[in-house]
Design a protein around this nucleic acid. Structure first.
Length: 401
DNA sequence: AGGTATTCACATGAAACTATTCTCTGAGTTAGG
DNA sequence: TAACTCAGAGAATAGTTTCATGTGAATACCTGT
């Protein structure tokens, strides 16, 4: 370690740019949520009956990532709880993110997690699901109360299990003698409700609400507000916020993305011991996000995926033309498999994996017909050049070539 | 020349197979009464 | 005796193979001029 770490540490300690970086981090919840007034009012309006001790309608909320769904619902939740306390109403609102792996991505785990949140205890495994379910019902029904269950990202959970779980949840009220329960489902996938049991659909979607993406101007407002709390005065150059907003607006109005962009731009600038964040750091941040995403995909992919990607990389390197076809890849892939002593998959499967790589945006594949010479995918690598070597290194390392 | 029939090299679908993970059940164990 | 634990049976799941069918246009093959 003959490097001069001193200066790096020094500039990190000085922390020249940020006042409070956590404001830009994804788990931060601001006290005001710009441009979501209408949605918040609607959610509050739908849930308001719980303050009278009555059941509220089930609610289903859609919207792309970073449109403020979770934030808004949490906000309403807190306000309702405050109000309920004033009024002395017995109200419980439980929030559960179904996407968290190993916590809440199966029927059993969701129930177990809910029981825990309600103050019960449950062993992590070993009990039949319906027993857990009964315990859950008992806990809820133990006293007169109103319960609101917020299930965030249920689309993720339902993909993994049958929709009978949701059905029984929606039917819960008929099993309860004392308590009352309402469900709020939150989903990123707009088409989610379309492919589930219509009975569930009608009861879960008693009320539906759509959170539209933010446009560039709205994103600017959000960024301005947050950057004031997070950055020191005058650190942000003219136009930086606007550019962040514009970038993120292009990517389906994702506010989270916009905030990441701003934060990373700040970090990059700080790392270079600057006392300002100027426009070029937005570009750098954007590249970094993209780069990290790609590297993460490559690193965490399966062996077979990596093998095929590696074959594509090699072909790109050895040929003058950037295009190649499924057959070329498959041939080289077979050889690579032999070299690494890996099982060779069928062409059918390789074809699917190539399609997956395409979906992830690492390559650009189009089905074309070459007439007499058949029909195939025309494939071009579409990762940034600077990443080529790095990715190749990762693959070689991981495949033991 | 103009039309149509073939043919290639895969794509795309459906079903079956397989290994691994999850869920569930009952036997055995423990601890408290 | 009730509660708990744990191994193994059975079900669910993901990744893959097998079999079957589909596809667009360059090229081969006609056909009548």
């Amino acid at each position: 370690m003959g490097v001069h770490l001193g200066s790096i540490f020094d500039s990190a300690i000085k922390n020249t740019l940020f006042k409070d970086k956590s404001v830009l981090q994804t788990n931060y919840s601001p006290e005001s949520i710009p441009h979501r007034d209408k949605q918040i009012e609607q959610v509050a309006g739908i849930l308001a009956p719980v303050l009278r001790g009555e059941r509220a309608s089930n609610l289903f909320i859609y919207g792309k990532t970073g449109t403020g769904k979770t934030l808004s619902v949490q906000y309403v939740k807190n306000e309702l709880l405050k109000k309920a306390e004033q009024l002395g109403v017995n109200l419980r609102i439980e929030y559960l993110n179904c996407k968290l792996k190993k916590v809440a991505d199966t029927e059993y785990r969701i129930l177990a997690a809910l029981i825990q949140q309600l103050g019960g205890e449950i062993s992590a495994t070993g009990l039949p699901t319906d027993q857990v379910y009964n315990k859950f019902v008992q806990m809820i029904d133990s006293k007169k109360q109103v319960i609101v269950l917020i299930l965030d990202e249920i689309d993720q959970a339902i993909k993994k299990m049958s929709d009978s779980f949701l059905y029984s949840l929606t039917r819960l009220n008929s099993e309860l003698s004392q308590a009352q329960i309402s469900l709020i489902g939150i989903s990123n996938d707009v088409t989610f409700l379309e492919n589930i049991d219509p009975r569930v659909r009608s009861s879960l979607g008693e009320e539906e609400l759509v959170f539209p993406p933010y446009n560039a101007l709205q994103l600017q407002d959000i960024l301005n507000e947050r950057s004031q709390c997070s950055f020191k005065e005058g650190v942000i150059d003219e136009g930086v916020v606007a550019k962040c907003a514009a970038f993120a607006a292009r990517e389906h109005g994702d506010a989270r993305r916009a905030l990441d962009l701003l934060r990373i731009a700040g970090e990059l600038s700080e790392r270079e011991a600057n006392n300002k964040v100027d426009l070029k750091y937005i570009d750098l941040a954007n590249e970094k996000i993209e780069r990290d995403k790609i590297l993460d995909i490559v690193e965490t992919a399966t062996k077979q995926f990596q093998l095929i990607l590696y074959s594509i990389l090699s072909l790109t390197k050895n040929k003058k033309v950037p295009e190649m076809f499924t057959g070329d890849i498959y041939n080289l892939y077979q050889e690579t498999c032999k070299r690494t002593k890996t099982e060779i998959l069928t062409q059918r499967r390789v074809s699917d994996i190539i399609a997956e790589i395409d979906m992830l945006g690492l390559i650009n594949a189009n089905v074309i017909s070459k007439g007499r010479h058949g029909r195939t995918r025309e494939i071009k690598l579409s990762i940034p050049l600077q990443l080529f070597d790095k990715i190749e290194a990762i693959l070689i390392e991981s495949l033991g070539l």
